[in-house]
Amino acid sequence: MKQSRFFPWIGFIFGAIYFLVPLIATFEFSLRMQRGTYSFKAYQVVLADPGFQASFSYSALIALLTIIVGIALVVPTAYLVQLKLPKLRPVVEFMTLLPLVVPAIVIVFGYLRMYNSSSWLPLTGSARSTDLLLVFAYVTLSLPYMYRSVDTALRTVDIRTLTEAAQSLGSSWPRILIQVILPNIRVGVLSGAFLTFAIVIGEFTIASLLNRPAFGPYMQLIGANRAYEPAALAVIAFAITWACMGLIQLVASFSPGQKR
C-alpha cells in the first residue's frame, strides 16, 4: 500500500516556516538601513567597524586554542576509554554531558570564585591568564560536542585491531595515536572542531562576565545601541555557523582511504 506523504510534507513545511521566516525577516530588516531602498549598508558598517574586527579575531583565536586543547584532551581520553577502560565509559559520558546541564553562568561564577585575584590560583589576575581561563571554560562548554563526535568516529573504526597491528609493527603509543588513529577519525575530530568554533564565536555569558573582548559581548553591545547592524551581525553569525557545517561535509567527502 502506498503511504500518504501528506503529513510528512506538512511537518516539513511547518518546520521550514518556523526556521526560515525569522531568518528571512532578519535578513530583510538588515537590508533597510538606507531609507526607501534595499542595501548592504548595515553589513558595510559592521564589517568596517574596528570593534567587529578586533572582537571577531579575538574570538577566532580563542576558538582555535579551544579546539587544540579540546582535541589534545578528548582524543586520547576517548581512545583509552574505548580501548582499555570500557567500563568507565558511562562515567566519562556523564561528565562530558555536565556542561549541558550546568548553565554557563553557574560555571563562570564558579570560576570567579575559584580563580579570583585573591585565590590560590589567581587566573583572573591578568588579561593573559584570564584568556587561558576562557579557553578552559570553552573546552568544558564544547566537551559534549567534541567528545561525542570523536567517540562516534572511534566506534566506526576497529581501533583495537588497528592498534595491535601497529604495535606488532613496532609502533609506540604516540605514533599509533597520531599516524593510525587520528587520521581515521579525522572527520569526527573536525566535526567536533567546527562545532566548537561555532559555539565559541557566539558565546556571550562567560566572555562577558570574565570581561574579555569577544565577539559575543560585542554583538550584545551593538544590539543594545544600534538598529540595523544587530540584524546584519545575526545574519553574519548564521553564515559562519553554516560555513562550519559546510566545511564538515566537505572534509567528510575528501578523506583519504574512505569510499566516496
Partner: peptide, 21 residues
C-alpha cells in the same frame, strides 16, 4: 616485553590494514 619490542609479524582475521594509507 611489549608487543613492539618483540619483532613479531601478525596477520589478523579482520585484515587490520590502515584505511588512511
Amino acid at each position: 616485553l611489549k608487543p613492539h619490542q618483540r619483532k613479531i609479524g601478525m596477520v589478523f582475521q579482520a585484515y587490520a590494514l590502515f584505511p588512511n594509507m
